[in-house]
């Protein structure tokens, strides 16, 4: 186990931000921490990184880790160029080779704006520079705190591909927090946190399997008749449509075949991470 958190707890005054969290991170794995706003994701991450000290419990690495962190906000200087920013940070590490900044700038496609000031870059460019900064010391474990928040869909995909590439090709251990649940689909390990507690952890498929129900929507010329034919109560009824939550594909097929004359159209949607997330954390806003 590369990293193990035992009974990790952090309180701020009366408020318990992280409540007895147990985590195990394997070397080379990809872990996504999910949770609504204020669930304790960032605090947990800061404890794992060592930026704050736990009130109780401990974080144990199997060896002294080389850590890279992509912070939620910008931590580079807006007035300095990308080149200056990266080189200055690189010089503050002891064992970073002289050409590291150049290599990273090529790998991450920064060469076009190396001489531009960091403050003038677009959100996506800035994020790539932030990631380059985090990779300067060739970390064994990379933490990313909401790396794709506020980016457009194309940039999100690009950043996402980049992180996955790093994890697969370079066997880097990646831990990230995100709001975008679809991003968690690719993770080996999904941990859903709320109110400072781990609600569930497992692979994305396992979690969806257990907590997300499939949904079947049917369009019918005779909605009352169709509703009467089916034992289960629908979750939504309109003049032309009925929607049911179902445990699996088989039960959907059973309904469809039994009522084929009454159905003019249908849509089957397998359970998503969103469904599982809402089922676990509830619908109220934070």
């Amino acid at each position: 186990m590369l990293l193990e958190a035992k009974h990790l707890t952090k309180t701020f005054g009366d408020r318990i931000a992280v409540n007895a969290v147990d985590l195990q991170i394997e070397k080379g794995s990809f872990t996504a921490l999910l949770g609504p706003n204020g669930a304790g994701k960032s605090t947990t991450m800061n404890l794992l990184i060592g930026l704050s000290q736990p009130t109780a419990g401990s974080v144990v690495y199997d060896q002294k880790p080389r850590i890279g962190v992509v912070f939620q906000g910008s931590v580079l200087d807006a007035m300095l160029t990308v080149q200056e920013n990266l080189q200055i940070r690189a010089d503050q590490y002891r064992h970073v080779s002289a050409d590291r900044v150049k290599i990273l700038s090529q790998q991450l496609g920064l060469t076009d704006f190396m001489t531009q000031r960091y403050g003038t870059l677009s959100g996506g460019q800035r994020r790539r520079v932030d990631i380059a900064r985090a990779l300067l010391n060739s970390p064994g474990i990379l933490f990313l705190d909401e790396p794709t928040t506020g980016l457009d869909i194309q940039t999100r995909h690009a950043i996402w591909d980049l992180v996955q590439h790093l994890q697969r090709k370079q066997k880097m251990t990646v831990i990230l927090t995100t709001h975008y649940l679809d991003e968690a689909d690719a993770a080996d390990n999904v941990i859903i946190i709320d109110h400072g507690r781990v609600l569930v952890h497992g692979t994305a498929a396992e979690i969806k399997e257990r907590y997300a129900t499939d949904s079947l929507t049917m369009t019918s010329p005779n909605v009352p008749q169709l509703a009467a034919n089916i034992v289960q109560r629908p979750t939504r009824v309109t003049d032309t449509q009925l929607t049911f939550r179902l445990p699996d594909v088989q039960s959907a097929l059973a309904i469809l075949t039994a009522n084929r004359e009454l159905i003019s159209n249908f849509e089957f949607r397998p359970g998503t991470m969103d469904d599982a997330f809402l089922a676990l954390t509830g619908k109220e806003m934070r």
Binding site: I49, L51, I67, V69, F71, G73, S74, V75, L76, D77, R89, Q92, Y93, R94, R133, N137
Partner: peptide
């Protein structure tokens, strides 16, 4: 204030 200090703290300095 800008959390830059945290990032600097991660270096070997």
């Amino acid at each position: 204030v800008d959390h830059i200090a945290e990032d600097l703290g991660l270096t070997d300095a």
